[in-house]
Design a protein around this nucleic acid. Structure first.
Lengths: 226, 226
DNA sequence: GTAAAATTAGACAGCATTGTCTAAATCGTC
DNA sequence: GACGATTTAGACAATGCTGTCTAATTTTAC
């Protein structure tokens, strides 16, 4: 029962503190996302977090510190999710179109529909110039690594699948671009695409990708005309 | 010499006034884009426009009116430019890859590198939720029309070019997505891609697009292996 | 139960901003 | 040059925000 021996000295009252911290971070993310950095007020964040203003100043010295903490927190989460999705990239070529499309749907759900991802995207547009180092970091750790990782996955897949890819990095970038083709615009607003729309969009993207990079000869009805 | 007869009563001193208006709109666009709506201060805009604060309040009743005017102004300009670029879409298939790539470079220059386009893109991310009607309008008149127009252009091109396109709207969206694949991320920051980078990126996109939608059989070295 | 730590509400100074007002200066036009 | 319209600088009140401080209250650990 006695936990004093287990808990290190600086972890004493962290149960309640941690809850507050999380609550503050969530509320702050919400308000920063709605109002931007300048438009967000500490009072609003405090109210939404169900916390007194002073508590925020106790945990995070000032507004900018809080802002940074929010960014860092969300970046960690999104990066983690991103790479857990990358781990589901198909290995074998059993049912290439289906499996790639399913992967595309997963990627889109976590990169475009996801709340955190939208937040980061928005923040990069708004405050990217104000905090260049932070977003340089995001860029290297997020999209930069994603592209390279996906390139490696395509390279692996090309061993067992009929893919004719010269430049794996380019193919990875184009795969992502095609995947996002239909969803980007609507994603800027609140409108989330339906599951069916995601499926259709992913299949269309993958079909085009495979037409461009698949090794099999294209089987269009026109062949008979040759 | 006498212009009083030509100038309508409410166009009297517009030469100077117009200059001020333009100057204010330019400065406001700059500051709004840098600082966001909340972060932008009228004083800063006035200083950058080389104009007194009161003059701004004379022309535009309040901050929000000025903001709307800036958006409207830039939307007009970007839409105009966009459709002037669309008019340069190739008609004949003489040198398909070259001509499409050149078109892609033009489109990218005016849609991604262009200052106004970046501004609109940023504003949609930041204030889109605050002014839904305005950006609904942009969306219908801008990207919505662009996609449909480009689809029609591909349909026309397909008459004389070896293109095998089922869904022209889809092809248009994917063309745009491929075109922007490499540039989107960097575009959020100040970094403008070099002319050479634009060329390379456009050629890669067009090559993939034509591999997916071109009617000619793909000529890869692997054919000998069949 | 007690002591230490964390939280709260509220007051507070300092500062920036918006939008108005006024009197002087400037500009365009005849 | 003179007149009317526009612009300007600056003062101004009202408001909201940040960040600090304090004293009371609650929570946590033991």
């Amino acid at each position: 029962m006695k936990k004093s021996g287990l808990a290190s000295p600086d972890v004493r009252a962290q149960k309640g503190q941690l809850a507050k911290r999380v609550s503050i971070l969530e509320a702050a993310a919400d308000v920063f996302c709605r109002e931007g950095f300048s438009g967000a007020s500490i009072d609003e964040i405090a109210a939404e977090a169900g916390v007194s203003r002073q508590t925020i100043y106790n945990h995070y010295r000032e507004k900018e510190t809080l802002f940074m903490a929010v960014i860092q927190d969300i970046m960690d989460r999104t990066n983690g999710m991103l790479f857990s999705i990358l781990a589901t990239f198909p290995e074998k070529a059993d049912n290439l179109e289906e499996e790639l499309a399913a992967f595309a749907v997963r990627l889109n759900k976590s990169c475009i529909c996801n709340q955190d991802a939208k937040f980061i995207q928005k923040l990069i547009a708004t405050e990217g110039n104000r905090y260049p180092h932070l977003f340089q970091f995001w860029r290297e750790q997020g999209p930069g690594k994603t592209d390279r990782a996906l390139a490696a996955l395509f390279a692996r897949l090309a061993h067992s699948a009929p893919l004719d890819i010269d430049d794996f990095d380019l193919a990875a970038r184009q795969f992502i671009a095609l995947i996002k083709a239909d969803l980007q615009m609507g994603g800027l607003f609140g409108e989330a695409p339906s599951e069916a729309e995601l499926e259709v969009s992913a299949h269309q993207a993958v079909r085009t990708f495979l037409r461009a990079y698949g090794r099999e000869r294209r089987t269009s009805g026109l062949e008979a005309q040759h």
